[in-house]
Design a protein around this nucleic acid. Structure first.
Lengths: 343, 343
DNA sequence: CTGAAAGCGCTAACAC
DNA sequence: GTGTTAGCGCTTTCAG
């Protein structure tokens, strides 16, 4: 270890009291420019490094934010996390990461994060935080932010799912499709429900009728049905309809669209010539698969999540804010629009 | 905030001195079972939460490990990080994450992590840590671990790149291919160089000759050429060879293979019927693309990285250890092996 | 403007 | 065994 120089060393060396040293180190106004200069010079010469934990103890704040995130999901989280990290380090805070594999772990991690003074705020990603934990969280009065999930008691940042689904479906309609199916995820998932609503509304606003038959959900319930296999299964189901099968689909996530495309290809359907698809998320895979999809501003969401959290730390009585981002349509090839344009 | 109960509160309430309280809380042997029981009961009743930073200050250790990781990148890091996180939380340590977008940032983050007492150890992922920083790191005597990179002065965990490349190439040879090309990344990258060696050796050991012409590198140098566009460009180059073009390729990363496949498809080549491919990494995309590839044991690498780091913390004078993992061949469809087997 | 001193909450060495 | 006390390194009154 570097032979730990403390402010006492600087004080002795510079000929001042530790109070003064602390003041210049913290940019306190009442210090003469000369002493400031001198102290800084000595600090630098001694290669002084503050002891973070001593500061945190004395200041009664941690300058750290923790994020509880379901890990292995996809690109979406990594991307949001990037935004989080970016903003956090800009603020000079630390990010401590808790990766959760199973909902049951949330409580344990929350307890750790809740240790008095440990963190200044917590961000929960796409978590169904157990009510029990929610209550404890509320009691602690610690600034909390929810990303990609919503609860009346905490600030949240989420995506306008219904709106995005509406736009995706409308795009297909504008392309001339009238029989449009939807591959959805499990209805226990709020985003899935909202996306269904958007799809339905788009249909109805454009004078098309909504049919249950045209909405299918795969059997695989992993990640609430937002997985590749579920998409494959749902599309396989559709294919069994034969000539009754819709020729355009709004799929509630890109990863499901991957599965759907595989099912399509295996059955001799080409995308977009035979079947048009629009996904949701714009995960990294989407570009490679040339999938038209609804992009969520992930990085920005991460940045905003931190900004909000910090704002609340500064002003705990701030009114609770729920922010919703609108996804944007990214037109690639799977919807068939580009082909049409070439004509 | 929870109305901060301290060990003083417990002491008063339970009728003991704070020393005793601290002892039971730390499982110190010399406490009567009865007092222990009593203290625990009171602590629980008061909902006592230790103040992490006070503990860290007093104990002179941080119980936290930080990881400096190039973010953007792919599945590989996330997966290794999962292993890291898993082991870290098993140990009750905290993980503080520093995401680096550009090598220049490394120094800044290193400085932050190096603040006296801040972390008990640091893990650098796939980083060309600047020499300057390396020297400072060495001086601090802080336990450091390198993941996916190597330096004589620090413990490291990496992948047997040459060996993996050898296996991939040999697989293609066993499948009957004699003219095998390689799409490589920039030679400033150590892994790229090692993979080239493995490829070359496999060729020579099997009596095939190595030709420079059969090794191409894309122009896009982002991430040292380990990117989709570079793969696309390199394959486009090969395609220009016309009938001289190899019909089997070892590609130095899956992401490049994605680009290569796109180039192939655009030019009317089918994979694996016309051209066989083997990638490297086994990123998530690989499964979807049915890519045969060399899998790296990412999760395990993360776990081991932490185990090593912790071992070094316990015993700083331990001999420096360099561990190399062997990638395993994952046979999917892109190499053509499955098709052949069906015959 | 600056020094002295009192904490921040906990651990650990030292008495009894 | 248990209480007492002295730090851990820094921030922050409070005098002067």
């Amino acid at each position: 270890m570097a032979k730990k120089v403390t402010i006492y060393d600087i004080a002795r060396e510079a000929g001042f009291g530790i109070g003064t040293i602390s003041r210049v180190l913290n940019d306190h106004p009442s210090v003469t420019p000369e002493t400031r200069k001198k102290v800084i010079e000595v600090a630098k010469r001694l290669n002084y490094q503050p002891h973070t934990y001593a500061q945190r103890l004395a200041r009664r704040q941690s300058e750290t934010i923790s994020a509880v995130i379901p890990f292995f999901t996809n690109y979406f989280f990594i991307e949001v996390l990037r935004g989080v990290q970016d903003k956090i380090s800009e603020l000079g805070y630390d990010l401590v990461l808790y990766g959760v594999e199973h909902p049951d772990q949330v409580e344990g991690y929350a307890s750790r994060a809740l240790q008095r003074g440990k963190v200044d705020g917590i961000l929960f990603f796409s978590m169904k935080v157990p009510d029990k934990v929610l209550v404890r969280l509320k009691e602690t009065n610690l600034p909390i932010g929810l990303v990609d999930s919503v609860s009346p008691d905490f600030d949240s940042i989420s995506v306008a799912n219904a709106e995005g689904a509406y736009a995706a479906t409308a795009h297909l309609i504008e392309l001339g499709h009238r029989r449009i199916g939807m591959i959805n995820a499990q209805s226990v998932s709020a985003p899935a429900l909202e996306r269904l609503q958007g799809y339905r509304r788009a249909l109805e606003r454009h004078g098309l009728s909504f049919t249950d038959e045209f909405v299918r959900i795969g059997r695989n319930t992993k990640q609430d049905g937002f997985n590749r296999d579920a998409g494959y299964e749902a599309m396989t189901d559709f294919i069994k309809m034969g000539s009754e099968m819709p020729k355009a689909f709004f799929v509630s996530s890109d990863i499901q669209a991957m599965g759907a495309i595989a099912a399509l290809n295996e059955n001799g359907f080409r995308v977009p010539e035979d079947v048009a698809l629009v996904g949701f998320d714009d995960i990294e895979l989407a570009r490679h698969m040339r999938l038209t999809t609804m992009r969520q501003p992930m990085f920005q969401m991460g940045v905003l999540a931190i900004e909000r959290l910090v704002a609340r730390m500064a002003n705990p009585d701030m009114e609770i804010l729920h922010t919703t981002f609108s996804p944007t349509l990214i037109v690639r090839e799977s919807c068939g629009a580009l082909i049409r344009n070439q004509n």
